[in-house]
Amino acid sequence: MLELRLVQGSLLKKVLDAIKDLVTDANFDCSESGFSLQAMDSSHVALVALLLRSDGFEHYRCDRNLSMGMNLTNMSKMLKCAGNDDIITIKADDGGDSVTFMFESPSQDKVSDFEMKLMDIDSEHLGIPETEYHAIVKMPSAEFARICRDLSTIGDTVVISVSKDGVKFSTSGDIGSANVVCRQNNSVDNKDNETVIEMNEPVSLTFALRYLNSFTKATTLSNTVTLSMSKELPVVVEYKIAEIGHIRFYLAPKIED
C-alpha cells in the first residue's frame, strides 16, 4: 500500500512539466526515504534524477519498495486536471496495475480521483558516484534560461567555461557568434539574484543547447540553478525543489574528434 499526500500539489505538476518532453516513460520508485525517478532521454545523452523526500510529504506511507512505470505524457494529462492550489495524493496497491491521483481543493469542497494504468518499463538504473567538481556555479535560474534560449538562436552548442573571472557561455553558428559572461556578484538584498562561483580549477565543456533548453523547463521550481562541472564529465544542472528535494539533469559533454 502506498499513500503520499503532497499539500503543495503544484510542485508535482511543475516536476512533470519539467521532464515530460525529455523523457517519455519512466519508473517512479517509492521507498521509505522518498519518491524518486531516474530516467534517460530517448537518445541516451541526458539523464534526469528526481527526489522528493518522504519528510516533505504531509502523509507518507510506503509499506514496501514499489516501482511504478508511468507514461509521463499521460501522467501530465492527469495532473493538469489538478488545480494549482490542490492537495495531491498518490495512491497505489502493492502489485496493482494502476495508480490513483486524488486532488482536493484547499477548502475541501471538491475531491477528484484519476486512475492511471501503469506500464512495465525495462529501464537501466545507473549508479551515479559522488564526485568532487572542478567548478560549481550557482546563478538565478531565469538568467540561465535566458542565456540558453538566446544562444540557441545563434548556434546549436554552447561552450561553458568557468575561470576566476566568471562563467562564460559561448556559441557560434552560420550568422555569427556570441559570448555571455556572468561575473560573481553578491546581492545583499536577495540571495536568489546572486551568481556565486566556486572553482578549484578552470573547466571548459561543450554541450548541445537543445538539452540545456529542455532542462530549463524546471525554472519554475526554483529561483536558482546550480551547474556542477568537471573536465570531460557530464554537467549536473540542479534545481532544488522547495523543502522537499531536487531535480538533477546530467548531460554528457560533446568531445572534439
Binding site: H44, V45, A46, E124, L126, Y250, L251, K254, E256
Partner: peptide, 14 residues
C-alpha cells in the same frame, strides 16, 4: 566536428 557521448557511458549500470 564533435562527438556526443552517451550519458550511460559515464556511470555504472546496476
Amino acid at each position: 566536428s564533435s562527438q556526443q557521448r552517451s550519458i550511460a557511458s559515464f556511470f555504472e549500470s546496476g
